[in-house]
């Protein structure tokens, strides 16, 4: 997207100090922003693009930012908007008709609607999961295995914590469809984590 010659845009003397700050800013927050974006997306390249858009937008608006201590929070706030824009772009057409069955969800139940296999007990390490990077690695794999639209719904609603009404607009789905997508996504994730994490240890 960036043309090669823009790499040689002279940064000094006119904007020498600025250029230094931009680079420092990027060193301080770049990886954290990329991690934040990658956690919510399955495509690394898209994550990098959104981080780039975030820094460009933040840089252009840097005069409106006050207070060093919350630079990270401010940048993450911009990134969240970029993520929403991205998800909005992905929803090309509104989905208004009922969704087809999801065999992974419905297959958990027999004809009478009872569990085929009951959920298993999980190892009681939920309290420490937040700090456990291996867990998040597995979580991310499970998320990447979701059908595309379910993954998007889940990312918008649960990872970006978008209010439900706004999530419907971003995803261009009816509330009924959103509830269904989310219940399927949560169910698939639960099952995937059960197999790959919670019941995968001796």
């Amino acid at each position: 997207m960036v043309k090669p010659q823009s790499l040689s845009v002279p940064m000094e003397p006119a904007s020498g100090a600025d250029a230094l700050d931009a680079s420092q800013w990027l060193s301080e927050h770049g990886n954290a922003l990329l991690a934040y974006a990658s956690a919510r997306l399955t495509d690394r390249e898209v994550a990098e693009d959104l981080v780039q858009e975030t820094f460009v937008a933040a840089w252009a608006a840097r005069n409106s930012f006050k207070g060093d201590s919350q630079a990270r929070t401010w940048l993450i706030g911009i990134l969240r908007h970029k993520l929403s824009d991205h998800f909005r772009r992905q929803a090309r057409e509104p989905i208004t008709s009922p969704l087809p069955e999801d065999p992974a969800f419905d297959g958990q139940f027999d004809a009478r609607g009872h569990w085929r296999a009951a959920p298993k007990a999980w190892a009681p390490d939920a309290g420490t999961l937040l700090e456990n990077h291996e867990f998040w690695e597995v979580f991310h794999q499970c998320m990447a295995n979701l059908p595309e639209i379910q993954g998007r719904a889940f990312a918008v609603r649960e990872l970006n914590q978008t209010p439900a009404t706004e999530a419907c607009q971003v995803l261009q789905v009816t509330p009924t469809n959103l509830w269904q997508l989310l219940s399927r996504a949560r169910s698939r994730l639960r099952r995937c984590l059960e197999v790959k994490w919670f019941c995968n240890k001796e």
Partner: peptide, 13 residues
């Protein structure tokens, strides 16, 4: 990616 982002910032400034 770092270089690309810095270039994009410079280009937009």
């Amino acid at each position: 990616a770092r270089a690309r982002i810095l270039a994009a910032i410079a280009a937009a400034t």
